[in-house]
Design a protein around this nucleic acid. Structure first.
Lengths: 109, 109
DNA sequence: ATTATAGTTCGACATGTTTCGAATTATAAA
DNA sequence: TTTATAATTCGAAACATGTCGAACTATAAT
């Protein structure tokens, strides 16, 4: 039997919804590239600003903002204001949960 | 830099879209429970019919059918007609890809 | 051949999502 | 204090998704 209750399932489905949009998936992976494990997640060079994320994606800043809000809401990324900028980075614990989700679903029960 | 090109990214986003609906996620996990690794995936007791999947989900058969079509389209499950029934089971290779996707995104390059 | 069972396809409707630009808030620089 | 920069919120338009029931196809049983 599965270990996931209804609330958990809902949270996972929300994460998948967040990653189901190509722009959001790109933002997520772009952030993931900048988070080198082994270094502290508080180091500045491991984070990107909203503006930096919008570049090359060809969508309006308001749309980027909206997508980031979704990624944050579901726990996939975190954000922190530093002066005029808002820095973003991936939440590694959540990624661990996703890896475990699929490993468990494969391993059965 | 990421290993995923635009086509790959698109495929992953489609898989996530398929799993973003709670009904489809339930169907997927229900199927995953029935696929015990170590046994051959051709064994009959490792598969479920469309009707069996619809039970307890409280949605019309046509809706179950629609959801299964989406799960199959994105490569998450497979289906095979056996007489009057159509048997369904998860595609383990695809699950492996998803595990790898998140592991890689964490390990970063 | 007729009937029953399992599942799919189609059309329609309600609901949700994506996107933008304009207006707004927050911070920093002049 | 005024101006500039970075990002968010809001409202609206276009588009996509989830759902159902009715009609259909495929197979099996009588």
């Amino acid at each position: 039997m599965s270990n996931y209750n209804n609330e958990n399932l809902n949270q996972f489905s929300e994460m998948f919804k967040a990653l189901s949009n190509v722009h959001r998936l790109n933002i997520f992976l772009y952030l993931a590239e900048y988070c080198n494990p082994g270094e502290l997640s508080t180091e500045k060079e491991m984070r990107l600003t909203v503006g930096e994320l919008g570049e090359g994606l060809n969508i309006a800043p308001s749309t980027v903002s909206h997508h980031l809000k979704e990624l944050r809401r579901t726990g996939l990324i975190r954000m922190d204001r530093q002066g005029k900028n808002i820095e973003c980075w991936v939440e590694e614990k959540t990624i661990d949960q996703l890896v475990e989700f699929f490993q468990t679903s494969k391993g059965g029960e």
